[in-house]
């Protein structure tokens, strides 16, 4: 019963695993967004930052493996729980009116899958350079990759839409993190909601600023 396996099998345990891996991923996207904003300081700043990240193969691959594991665990827990939740009500209500759930909460599943698809797309686009519509991908000139790709309107739009999905995902996810870890207290509950919204807004708007600025011609 109180074994690691029992914990992983239980619905509560899997939610805790989702919460912890979710926190790691929030940390990552927050850092990623901050680093990306260097694009506004110009090509040299961004390219130096890109080179710094790649300076140690050991560090780079450790971070990548940790992130990959976190994403894997997060998705595995989500999928198994979604499956359980789908079979838990075999006969649907003729009429069921949600009273309390937020739109963000109800979009967690669809939004999560969309983000997964986006991550794959994003890796093919800006990490491996497999997708490069109308420009040549460079492994060292990060700035030119970013600027030339977001001058392609549909590509900028893909990123903006994905980051709106991230906004919704984080606004419920960050709030949910505290609930799942068991940190719910009348004294902090309003702050918890505000914190989740602010984190979600800062991260997603930080990302959205880049394709928007390039599409609007502010960066070239």
């Amino acid at each position: 019963m109180s074994t690691p396996l029992g914990f992983v099998r239980s619905t509560v345990g899997r939610k805790v695993m989702m919460a912890v891996t979710g926190l790691m991923l929030v940390g990552f996207v927050a850092g990623h967004a901050t680093g990306n904003l260097l694009v506004f300081k110009g090509p040299d700043a961004l390219n130096a930052y890109g080179a710094l990240l790649k300076s140690s193969a050991v560090v780079l691959w450790t971070v990548r493996l940790v992130l990959l594991t976190a994403v894997g665990v997060h998705i595995w827990a989500a999928l198994t729980l979604i499956r359980l939740n789908q079979v838990s009500r075999p006969v649907a209500y003729a009429k069921h009116v949600p009273q309390a759930s937020t739109l963000a909460a109800r979009l967690m599943r669809a939004g999560g899958l969309l983000l997964l698809a986006f991550i794959v797309f994003h890796l093919l686009h800006l990490t491996t350079g497999t997708i490069h519509p109308g420009y040549t991908f460079s492994h060292t000139d990060v700035y030119s990759n970013v600027v030339s790709s977001f001058q392609v309107p549909w590509l900028a739009l893909v990123y903006i839409v994905a980051m709106v999905a991230l906004l919704a995902h984080l606004s419920h996810g960050v709030w949910s993190f505290f609930q799942t870890m068991g940190w719910n207290h009348p004294r902090f509950n309003t702050a918890r909601r505000v914190f989740a919204t602010v984190v979600a807004l800062i991260v997603s708007l930080g990302f959205i600023a880049i394709p928007s600025a390039i599409l609007g011609g502010m960066l070239r």
Partner: peptide, 26 residues
């Protein structure tokens, strides 16, 4: 099923049991 923190339960509850209990159980 499992909990996804929708909060529908506490709204429907005739005794208005709070979501805080779920956090405590977690």
């Amino acid at each position: 099923g499992g909990c996804t923190n929708y909060g529908e339960c506490t709204t429907a509850c005739p005794k208005e049991i709070s979501l805080e209990t779920i956090a405590r159980m977690n």
